[in-house]
């Protein structure tokens, strides 16, 4: 086995120290070493978006990075959205508009939408559809996801 590296990840403001092989995928480190299993893995090659998290506030695929590369960055996952029992506006909007069925794709969509709306609170409808086309959902047919994100766009306006 290749030598293990000391890596410290900062996820949702909390520090996690670990020893991992260089090939340890960031998504796996978040799930296994940090115990945060909200981040899902579907395809493991960048296509489905289930593993989307925020790295320094920008959406990235955590299946296409190695854990060691994320040292020094601020990571945010779905577990960091709610404040205690109070859902984040994007979570509430998915609830209100039935933006999920089985829920497998949901953490990825929530993080993608949060990143996109934070960076561009006034994003137009067309650009929003284009941005959301990044992630796949096998259940909803996307219409309710789009409705939810549009509703959250209004809620999240600063």
């Amino acid at each position: 086995m290749t030598e293990k590296l000391d890596v410290t990840l900062s996820v949702n403001g909390k520090r996690y120290e670990m020893k991992v092989e260089p090939r340890r995928m960031l998504a796996d480190a978040i799930r296994e070493e940090c115990g945060l299993t909200g981040t899902h893995l579907g395809c493991e090659h960048g296509v489905c978006g289930a593993c989307t998290i925020l790295m320094d506030d920008k959406p990235v695929r955590s299946c296409l990075m190695f854990a060691v590369q994320a040292e020094g960055a601020e990571l945010r996952t779905v577990e960091g959205l709610a404040k205690g029992n109070e859902l984040h506006p994007i979570q509430q909007a998915f609830w209100d508009h039935h933006g999920l069925q089985c829920g497998f794709c949901t953490p990825g969509f929530l993080m993608l939408a949060t990143g996109v709306l934070e960076q561009n609170p006034n994003i137009g409808d067309e650009e929003l559809v284009h941005a959301l086309s990044s992630n796949l959902c096998r259940c909803t047919g996307y219409q309710n996801i789009l409705k939810a994100v549009k509703a959250a766009r209004e809620e999240m306006k600063p």
């Binding site: 960048g46 978006g49 790295m55 990235v60 695929r61 296409l64 990075m65 996109v116 941005a131 990044s134």
Partner: peptide, 8 residues
């Protein structure tokens, strides 16, 4: 590609 891929 897509937004998250263009980030990296």
């Amino acid at each position: 590609a897509h937004v998250p891929i263009r980030t990296r």
